[in-house]
Design a protein around this nucleic acid. Sequence first.
DNA 1: CACCCTCGAGTTCA
DNA 2: CTCGAGGGTG
Length: 693
Amino acid sequence: MSEVSFEQAQVEAQQLTTKIMDARDAYYERDESLIADVEYDALIHRLEELERLYPELQGQDSPTLSVGGSASTLFAPVTHAARMMSLDNVFSEEQFLDWAAKTERDAGQKLQYLCELKIDGLAINLRYENGTLVSAATRGDGVVGEDVTANVLTIAGIPHELAGSGHPPLVEIRGEIFFPVDAFRKLNIQLAEAGEKVFANPRNAASGSLRQKDTTKTASRPLHMLVHGIGAWEDAPVPTQSQVYELLRGWGMPVSTHFRVVESPEAAAAFIAEMGAKRESVEHEIDGIVIKVDDLHVQRELGATSRAPRWAIAYKYPPEQVNTKLVDIRVSVGRTGRATPYAVVEPVHVAGSTVEFATLHNQDVVKAKGVLIGDTIVIRKAGDVIPEVLGPVLELRDGTERAFVMPTGCPECGATLAPASEGDIDLRCPNQKSCPAHVRGRVEHIGSRGGLDIEGLGEVAAAARTNHKDGEQPPLETEANLFSLTLAELKRVPYFVNADGSESKNAVELIANLELAKTKPLWRILVSLNIRHVGPVAARALADYFGSLDAIRRASVDELAAVDGVGSIIAESLQNWFEVDWHQDIINEWAVAGVQFATPGHAGPGAAAEIEGPCSGLTIVATGTLEGYTRDGAQEAIIAAGGKPASSVSKKTDYVAAGPGAGSKLAKAEELDIPVLDAAGFTRLLQGGPAAL
DNA sequence: CACCCTCGAGTTCA
DNA sequence: CTCGAGGGTG
């Protein structure tokens, strides 16, 4: 299943949908069976499978959503005057441009496009006769929908009588009914407090609210509608879709303010990218962008396939939430010994990548989320990067699920897990010196970019105390002998051995990198000692002030806390660290191996020199990819120019340097009205200060 | 003592 | 990126 690529799945889903639709049309409309029931079920099942793997394939009108007799007995059937078509989908800019190229070829001319937001709501068909609303119906299967006129009449903003005059004898106006995101959250809080079932998403809330038997209930919900097209209409009096919208606006219909007419496919692609970046800020949920050929005459020429018009396409954004199965909850132990439960899920495609794992933080979070092993769960990507478990889909429980039980022992060394202090939720493995998880985590940290930045150390870390060849010692007992590692010891790790038994190139390089690391700046060495609360920033402050590890060790708590950015907690953490004997072994062995524990030329405590430069006194945040700088390079450059690099944007930030790929920080900068620079502006600022801008 | 700003730590995937 | 918590400031 998971070996199906997205492209394959897309093609297959398209074919399945057509087959299913054809069979269904034949069955319901002409009362004949094209295929056997079992075969029909198999098609549906396969389509469901594909949609679970790639949820973005599932359109609002997917047959999987209406299988099993969706035709409600509550609402009378209504036959639409003109069929409610669905839209074909594209999932990338490339696919969109291909579609546009083909469309312009078919039309024999360059085209203008109307771009609008694809609202994730409920499609509705409003039938006006001589300016009066006579019926409102859901899409249904596109031919016959449900009559929800009484409910729709309660929705504010939908005119019962069209404004102005000169209305046609019959016009069908199509739009989307939706539940504003803010109101949706409030509704769910109310429902939860009243002990009622909450809605999974705004679309379900809209659907549930609209299809109430009791119309006063519908009236109490803040439903909205926005127009996105027309159905039956003899001789529309204007030549373009956008002008139709203007006309409808004049008649009092709610038309979105977010549409734009553009001159080229490239401009439409730009609109897609632009709206994708701010889709969170719109009042309703958006699952994509609809691009239509603006010219109505060309629309008629292009016509439609059996399902969808050829003159419009839906670009679908990757979904932010998907369902998958919670296969297991396991526990990992990190460098601080914290035992962290994490979810193992059936691999699923979310926001551009396949997710297999998601952290659950601690046992309280597992409880709070209410997930059981075996549940179908909802996953999203927080900030489009880190997978997050939102919660279980309770309707899909079948009783075979089981609760997660936090283990009492460390999964790596078996030591009894315990809270570090009274009342602490987190459980930790106490075996700091020799638990493989601890050692592995610490060695990884030493090699990390914020530490000594040593490539290839991750492999050693993984092999520390584990994975060594039978009967031999692992290359590392603890990090104490890291800098005295020999090639022979390294070769105990298969990764560093060639097929012929000789040491690999990586092994030689690693030894050389370790040699170089011994004379790296003091703050990096400090970070590598893995002292609680001492990260790159605190380490830099300490190193600048004291100049040597010896000076730091001899300092009192008060002297340590005198350093800007260091308080009593960090000071005590430092002193406690130095007292542990195997920590002293690390320092001693590293020193013997040649590690530099002092900044050459530093005059001793308090002698830290403020760098004077063009950017003295300025706080600067760098984000995104700045041309000519690496991520760390930008930080160093700011410091070298006398400025202060910060990791988050606040009122105190003076400048934000943003390159392509900048995300929330750029948005925050705009919100706070902080000057934003591109790479060139950033360089000018660093060289000449604010005056150079 | 209540805030706001940062840092540190844990995290996932290509 | 997000969270919780340390540190500094009014």
